[in-house]
Design a protein around this nucleic acid. Sequence first.
DNA 1: TATGAATGAGTATTCATTCAT
DNA 2: GATGAATGAATACTCATTCAT
Lengths: 209, 209, 209, 209
Amino acid sequence: MSDIRHERRRQSLLDSAYDLFLEKGVFSTTISDIVQHADVAKGTFYLYFKDKDDIFHALVDRISSRIIIQSEQAVLVSQTPDFTERMVLFADLIIEYFKQYPMVLRMLDRHFSWPRLTQQLQSSTDPTAQALMEDIRTSPVVQRMGAEEAWRLAFILLEMVGATCYSSIIENRPAPIDQMKPLLYGIIRTALSPTADAAIPDEKKAGVQ
Amino acid sequence: MSDIRHERRRQSLLDSAYDLFLEKGVFSTTISDIVQHADVAKGTFYLYFKDKDDIFHALVDRISSRIIIQSEQAVLVSQTPDFTERMVLFADLIIEYFKQYPMVLRMLDRHFSWPRLTQQLQSSTDPTAQALMEDIRTSPVVQRMGAEEAWRLAFILLEMVGATCYSSIIENRPAPIDQMKPLLYGIIRTALSPTADAAIPDEKKAGVQ
Amino acid sequence: MSDIRHERRRQSLLDSAYDLFLEKGVFSTTISDIVQHADVAKGTFYLYFKDKDDIFHALVDRISSRIIIQSEQAVLVSQTPDFTERMVLFADLIIEYFKQYPMVLRMLDRHFSWPRLTQQLQSSTDPTAQALMEDIRTSPVVQRMGAEEAWRLAFILLEMVGATCYSSIIENRPAPIDQMKPLLYGIIRTALSPTADAAIPDEKKAGVQ
Amino acid sequence: MSDIRHERRRQSLLDSAYDLFLEKGVFSTTISDIVQHADVAKGTFYLYFKDKDDIFHALVDRISSRIIIQSEQAVLVSQTPDFTERMVLFADLIIEYFKQYPMVLRMLDRHFSWPRLTQQLQSSTDPTAQALMEDIRTSPVVQRMGAEEAWRLAFILLEMVGATCYSSIIENRPAPIDQMKPLLYGIIRTALSPTADAAIPDEKKAGVQ
DNA sequence: TATGAATGAGTATTCATTCAT
DNA sequence: GATGAATGAATACTCATTCAT
């Protein structure tokens, strides 16, 4: 299958981009750098990717998926019984990942994002990804709020975690990430707990103005 | 006063950058564009700013301050008695601003951020900025959690609002901003309400891992 | 042969640089001028040379070689029997060349130099260059002083000729080159003559101090 | 006297240029650098010098004079009886100076030159400079060859020494300066000795061609 | 498919010089 | 004389993209 050769080469370019983006930053890495490091010809790049932005987003997707799946695997292993605590653990594992690999976080440049992921994860054949999807689908939160609403909530919480990681770990503000964690987890817990629903206002109250 | 001339010229360059960044995007705007639009010589730019990044960040600060102050003014006018509701209103006004001026949001490119702001606001002589600072300082949340902790909470909530605005308004996901609002405000209300504190775990529970 | 295309293009850039350096001077000639005159794209220049200095030195080498070889050809044609007189004739031909093409001398800007040349000439496949090398190697001076010492002497004499040409022809001092010639040739003759050796002090006398 | 202030400031600019030219090279030093280091305003520079070239040449003259005078002083102290040996010693002292301060040699960039100097020295009121002039004027060489011819010879020999120093000390070729010295001094000795005159050809023989 | 030489548009930045104060 | 803010011309160099082989 030439498809295998094709995919292997594509991955080789992604690997190359990953190394260089981490090392020199996305901006300073040129397509010349990438092909040189991947040991293919200049023109070959364009057979696989449209431009630097294209390969960057493909890379963001790959990394994000891996972080998500890796974290979910650890969640499954932990056999945490409570859904909310599973989600807190999930968030914690992601934060720990970024703590350990801050350069990855810097590279992602706030592009670590849930919605982009859900698309991928939902169509993923990876069993761990499917387990995560299933866990959320059958969660009490979805049953209480409905799937749509629950996804949005999950989205907001992940954005919150991602944005806070970026500011705290990369820009060192407003405080070290370990001091931000209790607050983040507190918010996640209350947001997912049944009592939290009460705080959600009626539609009419939504627009405060 | 040569200082006045100096400041006026600086503002003129910032105005020029603002117009062009909004119109053509930050990346596509060149220093040449900026000086031409401001009607000063090329070299003059470098007397005021180091490079494009420098003027961009100066601009982000200026815009962010203005949005904050403008929103706080409306909050003051509303005479909302409850602190939590003042904060929800404050968030709402910011969201409405970005809804109305999505290009500003795009321009800020996720750089609308609380900590960068607090530094400025705290040293600001603007009465509205001082009123905001005072309101937070004397809030029940600060009294309950302590100033440090409260600032971090505020920070997280603002990051959450900003990140959600960006995704929702600019990238149209996962849902229109009006559908995100109830969830955001719910989270803000519970986070600021006294009962929320119960959800904040002890230090020992913080590290889930 | 891609090598032939490559070399042809390189020479074309050198030709272009030669024309412009002579016409406008090295300083006033820009890379843009060179590529325009050579009718290639800007970027192409950088595939062949690092910067203006790089092409300048490549050009100096090319010109110097040509002057040397051309002069040696005339020496061979003259069938001058005596080695010393061959060398004086050789110097004279170089001086005459610079007299005829003062702009070349100006362009070389005192970079016409023997050691840089010997490297090239020694590895040259040009029969005239090889004849020159052979003539020197088998000269009585080499036999008397040893090769090392003789090369150094030749070097000093060529530096002397070059520096005097520059001052005399380009800066008109201290006198017209024709009035400098007798002195130069006198020095060359005594330096190469057997009796000159007597004047070369012992090592101990070398450090006057 | 405002003249004193003027001269002091001029010297201060020259000092500044000297420091910076040595440290960063002539090319990389800007007029801004010079005025900043001299602690005067930009415009002031132009009250004293036309441009960078102007101050550079003023500096070359100052340095060259100092080296010459300093060397002549040592010659006078040595009380060497023979004129030729005084000249060899003089050359040696110059070489030793450049050996000790190669950066000065680099800065002079082959502009250390006799004719430029003679003008200055001849009009100099410095007693050492006058002693040097007098020594040459009354030398046997001048008596034998005539003043004109002798000056030209001196010129050639100084050019030879300067060019050889530059190549040897700065560009390390063709050999260390200490190995070049015996040859240089041999040439100087024979050139100044009475027997050397014999080698100077008649006018008709001058043009070898 | 793959190559990599050639392209050339595009831009930041420097710095000598001026001149109103 | 002295200042230094303002000027703006001038230029090197990069790098994404193409296309003939």
